[in-house]
Write a protein that binds this DNA or RNA. Structure first.
Ligand SMILES: [Mn+2]
Ligand SMILES: [Mn+2]
Ligand SMILES: [Zn+2]
Ligand SMILES: [Zn+2]
Lengths: 144, 144
DNA sequence: ATTGAAATTGATAAGCTGTCTCAAAATTAT
DNA sequence: ATAATTTTGAGACAGCTTATCAATTTCAAT
């Protein structure tokens, strides 16, 4: 395997270029680690990266993940009291099923629900910009 | 007008009785103020009640609103970084349309969406316990 | 390759929301 | 009234995230 995550790296570089931001060793490091995850907290990335760079600061992780959000590579999702950064570099819009037993997260898309949401909004004179739909319950394994 | 909120007061008393809890002046005061609201933060109640009782502590407000949740009179909803306590004493399940312009909150129920949520869950082997659906956008007034 | 302006980093302080602690006060059963 | 139990209010504390700022790094222009 040669270079991984080339496309995403290009996307980041493009965003940096457009905003007078610089490409740093930390940003590269964090991007490569982030792209291996689906949903992860800043704190978890911090611990995970401590091996690769023990001096990497937590603030840098937060700043960088927020940068990825600006660049369209990540989306911050507030689950409970924590923010999970959703790796959306290779995904379109989706919502979440969350197991309260084992924390498992399953992504889903349902255009029928999306359509009905629009209908509800229109009926009430609203124009939807974003929405959040989270279904909490037990996965098949945790039910037994 | 004689006594308002009698039914809710009875519900609270019943909960208190069942759990060896006491009826205090503060709990009565907070209940009466709370029942006049639809969605309110603890902080907002704190300021609102400062006139009636300047010594009422914020911790007491939080404790009491959480007590109302236990008693089934309120539901804590986490919108953004704040918790709003939803006065559900006179409502069934519902979801929310939220205007990002003026903070207006409109409640709605859509059983078709609820049904589709169940379908999604079943298809993924989940059993739903709760869910949250929030639609963010602009109300008709804020759109112009 | 050097320079130097501008951005970034790491450590830590601060902010924000909400809960915990504990002595004093209030409630309720006796 | 008495006494056991619960509640309150003030402030400390906790969890998560952002702000501050001096030192370091990047990068475009020499
Ligand atoms: Mn996701
Ligand atoms: Mn509501
Ligand atoms: Zn599970
Ligand atoms: Zn509005």
């Amino acid at each position: 395997m040669t270079n991984k995550h080339v496309k995403e790296m290009e996307a980041l570089k493009e965003h940096l270029g457009k905003h007078q931001l610089k490409l740093t060793r930390q940003r590269e490091l964090i991007l490569n680690a982030f792209l291996r995850q689906e949903h992860i907290t800043a704190e978890a990335m911090y611990h995970q990266l401590a091996k690769a760079d023990p001096h990497l600061g937590l603030a840098t992780i937060y700043r960088t993940l927020n940068l990825f959000c600006d660049a369209g590579l990540a989306q911050a999702r507030h689950f409970g009291s924590q923010t999970k950064y959703d790796n959306v570099s290779h995904k379109g819009h989706h919502d979440h099923l969350i197991c309260t037993g084992c924390e498992k997260i399953v992504e889903f898309e349902n255009e029928e629900i999306e359509r009905l949401q629009e209908e509800v909004a229109t009926r009430n004179g609203f124009t939807i910009k974003t929405h959040r739909l989270e279904l909490y319950g037990l996965c098949s394994r945790c039910r037994h």
